[in-house]
Amino acid sequence: MNVTDLVEIIIAVALVIGALFTLVGSIGLLKLDTAMKRLHAPTKAATLGIGSLLVASMLHSFAFGSGSLKEILIMVFLFVTAPISANFIAKVAIHRGQDMPPPEPPKDQNWATLNPTDETVPGIEAPAKT
């Protein structure tokens, strides 16, 4: 039992965890029954699954190659964009009326996606300044 064996075990564990989570994401995509429920499985499980695979790749390149930190870029990119993609897909599901209708917002008139006069809304995440 030396250091190389330990690194190989860690790489193997990271690979198995990543593969399992990615698989669970796709199983959830197929199994769940409404559009909004289906959104949960791939956005979370797949993101952590790919993150785990990238950690394995990074460890592998440090243990058996020249070493690179490039995988961090992909990881950061995926973790920043996954919520944005999920938000857009949720808006599409609400817009197409695929799920039970959302409740009334407590303070404002309506939700941005359902607002009939949202031509004036400049961006998705930009709230009105008060």
Partner: peptide
């Protein structure tokens, strides 16, 4: 519905990234 198809495409892209990363590990290149 079209929302499910967008979500499925998004998932497939993420899985494809995983497959490319695995190929990189298997061949030992970057």
């Amino acid at each position: 519905d079209v929302a499910d198809r967008i979500l499925a495409l998004d998932t497939m892209v993420v899985d494809a990234i995983g497959l490319i990363v695995l190929l990189g590990i298997a061949q030992g290149t970057e």
